[in-house]
Write a protein that binds this DNA or RNA. Structure first.
Length: 232
DNA sequence: TCATTAAATTGTT
DNA sequence: AACAATTTAATGA
């Protein structure tokens, strides 16, 4: 099921160079990460990693879209958050040395980078900029989950879609690619736990408010701040 | 390059 | 969940 084939490292180098923590690393550190990090292609619906597995890697999404969630015995799934291209996840379980708590499933064909835990811990011990990045990263995610609790309480689908989109755009702010994210309304529904039809309606509402623009197969954010604050 | 077809995505019921 | 309309991608002349 999982495609374990590795791809050329040239793609990996380009991906790492755009990571905010990459430039401050020493040449030796960069060389180690580049040498040890592996790239896999995950087909739509495939597992990037599974709940209960030993945590052996820090995981970055090169392109595509990955959903973090849990699965119960009866196969019911709950979406926790989406990981867009350029973002990393799994540091929480790496730091605590525990089994993986969530599934990560590719919502579309994706390329994923796996950094071994030894390399991750080396950076953690040696690089202050890396620690600084992680601190901001963790703080950002904490804010996301607080936002989740709020929007789940309100249970207004418009709000859920809005906050979900705001998360997905967070990491994409740094690249100058513009505030465009290629995502279908169906994928957005899977992420925010709302039916595709309801996503469609919510997007129209948000577009009418001037928060974003909807195009075929992609969404353009016009006002990220107001999108985050939507409903509050 | 253009026209035709298939597939994907969206909008509505 | 099902359907029709629309957009993109692929194909071949």
């Amino acid at each position: 099921m999982n495609d374990l084939s590795c791809t050329a490292t040239s793609n990996l180098a380009a991906f790492l160079e755009q990571a905010p923590w990459w430039a401050p690393l020493s040449a030796g550190q960069q060389a180690r990460v580049l040498a040890e990090t592996q790239v896999r292609r995950i087909a739509t619906g495939g597992f990037v990693c599974r709940k209960g597995e030993a945590v052996s890697h820090w995981i970055g999404v090169i392109d595509g879209l990955v959903r973090l969630g849990t699965h119960s015995a009866d196969g019911k799934i709950a979406s926790l958050t989406g990981i867009p291209a350029g973002a990393w996840f799994g540091e929480g379980s790496l730091l605590k040395d525990e089994a993986r708590r969530y599934d990560a499933i590719a919502l579309r064909d994706s390329r994923v980078a796996y950094m071994p835990r030894a390399a991750f811990h080396a950076l953690l011990g040696e690089s202050i900029p890396f620690n600084r990045f992680l601190l901001g990263h963790l703080n950002e995610r904490l804010g996301q989950f607080i936002g989740t609790l709020e929007s789940q309480r309100l249970a207004d689908p418009d709000v859920r879609v809005a906050t979900c989109l705001a998360w997905l755009f967070q990491p994409n702010l740094y690249p100058a690619t513009g505030a465009q994210l290629r995502i279908t309304q169906e994928e957005l529904g899977l992420l925010s736990g709302v039916s595709r039809q309801r996503v469609n309606k919510a997007l129209k509402t948000l577009a009418a408010d001037g928060l974003l623009r909807v195009n075929y197969g992609c969404v353009t954010i016009l006002d990220l701040d107001r999108l985050r604050a939507f409903g509050s």
